[in-house]
Design a protein around this nucleic acid. Sequence first.
RNA 1: GGAUGUGUAGCUCAGUUGGUUAGAGCGUUCGCUUCACACGCGAGAGGUCAGGGGUUCGAGUCCCUUCACAUCCA
Length: 875
Amino acid sequence: MTTAPAQHPALPERPTLDGLEEKWGAVWQQQGTYAFDRERALTLPREQIFAIDTPPPTASGSLHMGHVFSFTHTDCMARYKRMLGHEVFYPIGWDDNGLPTEKRVQNYYGVRGDATLPYVENFEPPHRGTATSTKSAHEVPISRANFLELCEERTVEDEKSFESLFRRLGLSFDWQQTYRTIDDFSRATCQWAFIRNVQRGEAYQSEAPGLWDVTFQTAVAQAELEARDYPGHYHRVAFHAEDGPLHIETTRPELIPSVVALIAHPDDERYAARFGTTVTSPLFGVEIPVVAHPAAEMDKGAGIAMCCTFGDLTDVLWWRELQLPTRSLITRTGRMHHENPEWLVGTPGEQLYAEQIAGKTAYGAREAIVALLRESGDLDGEPTPTQRKANFYERGEKPLEIVTTRQWYIRNGGRDAALNAELVARGDEIAFHPAFMRSRYANWVAGLNGDWLVSRQRFFGPTIPVWYPLDEDGEPLWDNYILPTEEMLPIDPMADAPPGYTEDQRGKPGGFVGDPDVFDTWATSSLTPQIALGWRRDDELFGHLFPMDLRPQAHDIIRTWLFATVVRAHWEHGTIPWTDAAISGFILDPDRKKMSKSKGNVVTPEDILKEHSTDAVRYWAASGRLGTDAAYDVGQMKVGRRLAIKLLNATKFALSFGEVEAFGEVEGDLRAAVTEPLDLAMLAGLREVVEKATAGFESWDYTRSLEITEAFFWTFCDDYLELVKDRAYGGQGEGPAASARAALRLGLDVLLRLLAPIQPYTTEEVWSWWHEGSIHRASWPTAEELPEGGDATMLASVGAALAAVRKAKSEAKVGMRSEITALTLTGPHAALEQIRAAADDLRAAGRITAEPQYAAGEAIAAADVELIPAEKRAG
RNA sequence: GGAUGUGUAGCUCAGUUGGUUAGAGCGUUCGCUUCACACGCGAGAGGUCAGGGGUUCGAGUCCCUUCACAUCCA
């Protein structure tokens, strides 16, 4: 029930948006306005809780308008749910681990992690943000532990700038519900979830050819790949057979020493006679078979390809399906093996390899081999330039190599059709907003071709909690791996000894070694629901709130973050991790280009917020629908700013007419004071607005809700407020004045609450002028709280009559103060009746001094207007 | 090449199960110091709904097709 306080509202002389962020930000923080009430949540039925799996920003990453955009979307929903009375669980975490942080630390401090170095006490890095060179030669190698200390230092600092932005943006997080993906609890959660996967057979280790980044020297997963055009040259090279040369075309002649087969398409007539025969490789003289496989592309190059284990993923396919030998040449550093490969022993190529190839980079080896081919006459013609698609690590600059390594994998349906179908079905259980984003998910899952590789040969991340016993010769017994117990977590197998061993047995025959790797960053962030809700730490809360309600995120990481989270929840809990996924689009610059640092078109969000005010920027963000890319549009921010200022001024004006009680009989219930048909008409229109605005939020369309409310608010200001202001001042007596004042208050009370999720600062400021408590803890408006009995079309009719009067003055090019001494209003009969019923309001607003004439007509219009131009004021 | 989305006023975008003359804001033009707001108010101009074909009494909306753009995956 809306009640008017006894004292006159304290209205500011000249309301302003300036300073509202500081003023209300401090109040919200101090009063815990957005605090999550765990005890209340546990007593509520699940459907009255709204739990959000907030995206933890990469602390070392840059702040950009995309953060402002998507976080505002989620915050609008969170605020709506909170006003509905839901207990909102809205945590904020920081994604610290991973390569972005390592790169930032390397550049910021001028250091490089080196696992072979010992820890140095009180290490002082050469730079703190002052490094001028990013060349690795200028980086100081430091121990893993020292490196981790610097990662820790840097991320804590970087988090502060995010916090500052998020607070100014007015995000209604509970800042007590925070986590860092590198903190002890997150690491323990990550390790324990993995151990459970291992124990149930959902994770396994395998020695297999995999994608490898030679720059970062780490394995890379399918989800981190990026196919890019990469310039190369086709080299037409002759292989030798008894009946003459067989030419192939290759972009990677340096791999000729490791060729294991020549492969053509089974339907390719040109090579049909060759299948089953052998040829010898040029220079090296290794005998290899010519075989058929449908993956050979007939129209590419010569139509016959050399298979090297391994040059690319097709080689891996052939190697697996045709059971070809493994002849690995490229090492983890990207250089050719130093030792002579055993398959070259005794061939003409043995000496050649040792002298010309061993230890060279792939590029150097290529140059050498091309020169040798030219010399031997096996190079046919000159190399011709070509563009090929090569796989890159998304953060890397060199094409990935394929290297055989021992790694850990989590099963994700990439090698198991039944599991794949189950995971696709999980996607069907989740409501995507917008719904078409489910296709992204389904396409990705269906297209997987391998399990999820989680080992990374990096530093800053939860360690893989596994030890391997060593046999009497000091060789690891991989399959007898040792896992820690739950109480030990988090552990570092490179620093902690496994159960039953002591540290001095590390690396000794009969002792143990630790797995040196860390987890893929998604292996931790795929557990954000578990981390945020305190799985294993607060099982009561976790049990009640999991699965959560909402995962908000951008569409580019559906294949990574969203999918990985689904995989982990599927294995550990047998459920989806949340019921809804809200997918935000990207921010494009005005030229419709994606904004990015490399394009130099980024703007600094905090500056934008200060320049336009938070509520203005939030208005822009809330004007972008889920799933739709949005333009960075200063114009929209200005519109939002105008709306906010209008809220200030209109509310001040509406309250300034005086208290409703002054006219007696009201007894606090404003609804009883609303008696005039025009006032009831306005409120009837608002009842419809409340229903539509609520329906908008319910269908995750906060933009629709905003549009509906905003449009009504402008009509409220331009037409209704103009029509009733004379009456509200008392121009028609006390009862009609009370009706207008009460209707204005009721209307604004509802309008402010409808806009509160979008413009939290302005609505809070205005609300405070005549209410106790935060608007953000007030209840979401309902149609029922407004009086019935009005006819919403009446305001439209009277408003149209007012517009007709204004048009007459505008066309006469006179001021709106000009007096109208005669006019005829035309329109449909019903509309004229409505206008007649509000004739006094219309005459006051239009300065119509004569009694208007009424005449039937099609549209509402003013005719036969006589007016006296207002005297122009001096100055 | 595949998937998904988009194409409506100069710009940014709405347009519900198909239903009068296709809407809003910005910008633009003209006018107005009107006792909340000049960060304001009022009025006007501005569209072959990407092209073509079809279904229908009726299509921006449904179907087919072509084109363009974007994103993701090959």
